[in-house]
Design a protein around this nucleic acid. Structure first.
Length: 948
RNA sequence: GCAGGGGUUGCAGAGCCUGGCCAAAUGUGACGGGUUUAGGGCCCGUUUCCUUUGUGGAUUCGUGAGUUCGAAUCUCACCCCCUGCACCA
């Protein structure tokens, strides 16, 4: 049994003593690996092993390939998480405290976690401990925290550059807002952690006849404005008339709605009245100029939108139903007829199971959709809702405009055009609505509204030139796995204005508004560069880190002497920092998770482009997937989160690394599960056992099977290198552990027992395994008698001359033959009462082999037979039979060719093995010399078998 | 809705870019057998159906259509699933 704990302690100490991972500038090519900043607001769990472990595997591999690799680590404490953490501890949050107990954090430590500084220190140490245990080849001397004053200086410098380049703008922005606390609310500030879903809708103005007042309706479907036959109001609600800054005329809104909208517009209320009063008015459809009435609508919500609804009975089931109900109540709705503006085939784009029948009459689509669900205007709201959703969906996807001026146009396109037109004429504008199914409440208990914030600072990722640069540069950059390049490209296109400051949290003060703090994703877009100097400036007073310093170090601007004079930093320090940056910041690999593609990674790319010279831009981005636990997503509620250190101690670091890092290819999810870990352990045991046994094996002369193992080994080395380059770690690991074990087993069962061959194979395994399972590799390496550290060894390239397809073919022939023979043996033993005495293997004659060549090239019977005649080597009758049968399955005519003698030799050499496998005596004969009735059936590479 | 990814034989998961050698790797589970035979481990076999002194046939890779001599692989349409959508790290 392998004692993982023992080998982990032994080798991590050896690595530390040899300072193997403390990287200094040297004559070799640099390679700089960074992985996402961990947050020091909790210990890490098994899932974290993925990104950091993958980065470690790459680091270790690149070191083997002769690069001077730097893999540093720092911590991200800016933003609200650490503060919020302290706040929750202070308030005695049971859930959080419980979580911490799961991670075995002592109570007296938890008690101290009301202090953000303590939290940061505690968890940076805790995380570092876990990372060391996990065997990451990290240079810890460069560690820093994003709240360090020196780091802030660099962020200030960065924002100075962004500002100079005109990438910072001030403007308006909609956010979820609590009117009580006067604060922006995100998901974590709401009750039950719901995300306020803010959506833009179109508000359309309907002028009230004979006045300069407008009724305002919010809608998602402005393209149906031509089908508006009336408005709906809630006759029991209060309405107001008001003035809106920047707009002419007066506007009518529900009172409740106007209160919410006041956070989006400056609204001055000029009057208040009951909804009933509106019923006597008429207004003008802005698209058709028709005069339309105002009716009471049962479904109108005074808080939703504007509290007025434009009625499109032709295309909105709710509107249709409301009108029908009014009619049945005796309301005079004559003159209001549904108008069809879109043509659509019902049931075209929906799951047919929902639909009961397809109505024939589609003159009123809204009615038809209700009928499709077997309902009419008496339907309940849930059915109307269903019909509405289906109709909206189908019309958008498959509908064609039928109204004048837009005939045949797709609904999506018409929506854009009509909205644009209305806006141009000043008849529509955008408002924001919360789209959550139920009201969103702030934690303080107040309902959340949408506020349009003024004076909000943004980074303008929409800047055309910047965007073009990013788009272009992405093409040059290496992206692993290749398939996320698309996602990055669309992220680059999509990212636009990004709010960049917050009013609370830890972090760097925003240089252009010192009240605000730089938002924490924006402060960590170029931090990797800081690793290159974090150790050279350790003793420098942060106040001296003026922009001139960073200009010189990162951009090579200015003169050393004058920078030193104006900053007060010694020239040697400045010079060293510059050299370090220049040396390391070239070949870089950035590692992150899939959730960061659309924010961090995109911003990382943009900001490098904005700040640095092109040689310093990202060279490679690597995104690794997430880790499941026993096939399920890890989550607190499932209680299946394994703390990193605990998992590593329980199962051993390398089995866990193998399963988590090598268990799936990059972006795919890997599964941390018991079976897989055991599978890996079993194989490690096998390898170690074989290694021990092989000490007693003699060397001896090399046989076919030895050459076979060499051939497989060298092929494997080639394949592993190719897969490592693309970080296809699953491919690598399956190949070097699982397949190796299969090959070794086959080798020994075929009588392979050459100690030198086995040990050479094992040492190449140790080398190849090292990036993924370093401890086990190290142990194996030393068991094989090496005294160096495998972690500092070079990659051994494949010896092409040892790769032999022919040798491998021999082995395949034998395996196939045994397989076939076993089948036949089974069949016969089932049928025959008699005991089976022996088996004959009959190897096909050479004339068949020569014919195979012809069959593959000529492919036609007459021509082939022509050849047979000329050649005269074979019996014509036998030959024609053979050719015609082979022609039928021309695809399976083997390309490889052996002579009868060669093939015969192969079976002769393996005769003992075959006999053992079958448990009966085996004779090997040549077709021409055999007396077996089945001799004819022998095919090249597919001997006939005669068992009796 | 928009964007990205995906739907493969019990499960997991390759293959798809570069069509044929794919009834489809590998792992795991299940079943049967073996092993100085409790279990485990290890070894062998089976694991879509039919057939069989054999290496054969039929039907399969979300659904439907198409291109092709030939499609899991290419094209189109549709259905379903996962992830993200901003001030939140």
């Amino acid at each position: 049994m392998i004692n993982y704990k023992e080998i982990e302690e032994k080798w991590s100490k050896a690595w530390e003593d040899s300072h193997l991972f403390e990287s200094e500038i040297d004559h070799k090519n640099p390679y700089f690996v960074t992985a996402a900043f961990p947050y020091p607001n909790g210990p890490q769990h098994i899932g974290h092993l993925r990104t950091y472990g993958t980065a470690d595997a790459l680091s270790r591999y690149k070191r083997m390939k002769g690069y001077n690799v730097l893999y540093p680590m720092g911590f991200h404490a800016t933003g609200t998480p650490v503060l919020a953490f302290a706040k929750r501890i202070k308030s005695g949050d049971k859930g959080l405290i419980n979580d911490l107990k799961v991670f075995h954090i002592p109570e007296e430590e938890i008690a101290k976690m009301t202090d953000p500084v303590f939290i940061t220190r505690y968890f940076t140490e805790e995380i570092q401990r876990g990372m060391k245990k996990a065997g990451y080849s990290i240079d810890w001397r460069r560690k820093f925290v994003s709240t360090d004053p020196a780091f802030s200086k660099m962020v200030e410098w960065q924002f100075g550059i962004l500002n100079k380049k005109g990438y910072l703008t001030v403007g308006k922005h909609p956010v979820g807002w609590c009117p009580n606390e006067n604060n922006a609310v995100g998901m974590h500030d709401t009750r039950r952690d719901v995300e306020p879903e803010i959506e833009k809708v179109t508000a359309i103005k309907f002028r009230i006849e004979n006045s300069d007042k407008y009724a305002v309706c919010a809608t998602f479907r402005p393209e149906t404005v031509g089908g508006v036959t009336n408005l709906f109001v809630n006759q029991n609600s209060k309405y107001v008339s008001c003035k809106i800054e920047g707009e002419d005329g007066e506007y009518i809104l529900a009172k409740a709605a106007s209160e919410d909208l006041a956070y989006q517009f400056k609204i001055e209320v000029t009057g208040e009245f009951d909804g009933k009063e509106l019923l006597s008015m008429r207004c003008i459809n802005p698209e058709t100029d028709a005069s339309i009435p105002i009716f009471p609508g049962f479904f109108v919500d005074e808080k939703r939108g504007t509290g007025l609804v434009m009625s499109v009975p032709g295309h909105a089931p709710f509107d249709y139903v409301a009108l029908e109900r009014l009619r049945n109540e005796g309301y005079d709705i004559e003159g209001v007829k549904p108008i069809k503006v879109i043509d659509v085939e019902i049931g075209r784009a929906a799951a047919p199971s929902e639909i009961k029948k397809i109505p024939e009459n589609r003159d009123i689509p809204a009615m038809a959709y209700l009928e499709a669900f077997g309902a009419d205007h008496t339907a309940g709201e849930d059915v109307i809702e269903l019909a509405t959703k289906l109709e909206y969906k189908e019309e958008l996807r498959a509908g064609r405009m039928s109204i004048k001026g837009y005939e045949g146009m797709g609904v999506g396109e018409a929506r854009k055009i009509i909205t644009e037109k209305l806006k141009e004429k000043g008849k529509a504008s955008d408002i924001y609505m919360l789209m959550n199914d139920s009201q969103v409440f702030c934690r303080c208990g107040f309902p959340v509204v949408v506020k349009v914030v003024d004076n909000q600072w943004f980074i303008n990722y929409g800047d055309k030139e910047w965007k073009d640069n990013a788009r272009e540069y992405l093409k040059e950059m290496r992206v692993l796995p290749e398939k996320i390049r698309n996602a990055l490209a669309s992220a680059i296109d999509w990212i636009d204005l990004r709010a960049v400051v917050r009013s609370q949290g830890l972090g760097t003060k925003f240089p252009f508004d010192k009240e605000k703090i730089i938002e924490s994703l924006s402060d960590s877009t170029i931090y990797m560069s800081f690793y290159t100097i974090s150790n050279t400036i350790k003793r420098v007073d942060p106040e001296r880190l003026k922009p001139e310093f960073f200009d010189f170090v990162f951009l090579g601007k200015g003169e050393l002497e004058s920078v030193s004079r104006s900053t007060g930093i010694e020239t040697s320090t400045i010079q060293k920092s510059r050299e370090s940056f220049e040396y390391w910041y070239r070949e870089t690999s950035r590692h992150s998770g899939p959730d960061l593609i659309f924010n961090h990674l995109t911003m990382y790319l943009y900001n490098h482009i904005a700040v640095f010279e092109k040689e310093r831009w990202p060279k490679q981005i690597v995104v690794s997937g997430v880790v499941l636990s026993e096939g399920e997503k890890m989550s607190k509620s499932l209680g299946n989160i394994t703390p990193l250190i605990e998992g590593l101690e329980e199962n051993g670091v390398d089995p866990v690394r193998a399963v988590v890092i090598g268990g799936a290819d990059l972006i795919s999810d890997s599964d941390y599960n018991y079976e897989a870990i055991n599978g890996v352990k079993d194989r490690f045991e096998y390898i170690f056992g074989l290694c021990k046994d092989s000490e007693d094996y003699p060397a001896g002369e090399l046989k076919n099977i030895d050459f076979w193992l060499y051939s497989r080994m060298n092929k494997k080395i080639k394949a592993a290198a190719a897969a490592y380059e693309k970080l296809e770690l699953r491919e690598v690991f399956i190949n070097i552990l699982y397949n190796s074990v299969l090959e070794l087993k086959r080798y020994t069962s075929r009588g392979g027992k050459n100690g030198i061959v086995i040990r050479e194979y094992l040492s190449s395994m140790a080398l190849m395994m090292q990036p993924i399972t370093p401890y086990v590799a190290e142990e194996l390496w030393h068991m094989l008698g090496n005294s160096s550290l495998v972690s500092s060894e070079r990659w051994k390239d494949a010896d092409e001359s040892m790769i032999s397809e022919k040798i491998e073919l021999y082995e395949d022939l034998i395996e196939n033959l045994i397989h076939d023979m076993k089948d036949i043996y089974l069949l016969i033993s089932k049928k025959s009462e008699n005991n089976i005495k022996n088996a004959r293997i009959i190897v096909a004659d050479d004339w068949k082999r020569q014919l195979n060549e012809r069959i593959r090239t000529l492919k036609k019977m007459p021509e082939i037979m022509e050849f047979v005649k000329k050649d005269n080597a074979a019996n014509m009758e036998k030959a024609s039979k053979y050719v015609s049968s082979m022609l039928k399955k021309i695809e399976s005519v083997p390309v490889e060719n052996l002579t009868q003698e060669e093939e015969f030799e192969v079976y002769m050499q393996a005769r003992n093995y075959i006999q053992e496998a079958l448990g009966i005596a085996v004779e090997i004969e040549k077709e021409g010399e055999s007396e077996s009735p089945r001799a004819d059936r022998a095919l090249p590479l597919k001997p006939s078998v005669d068992i009796r």
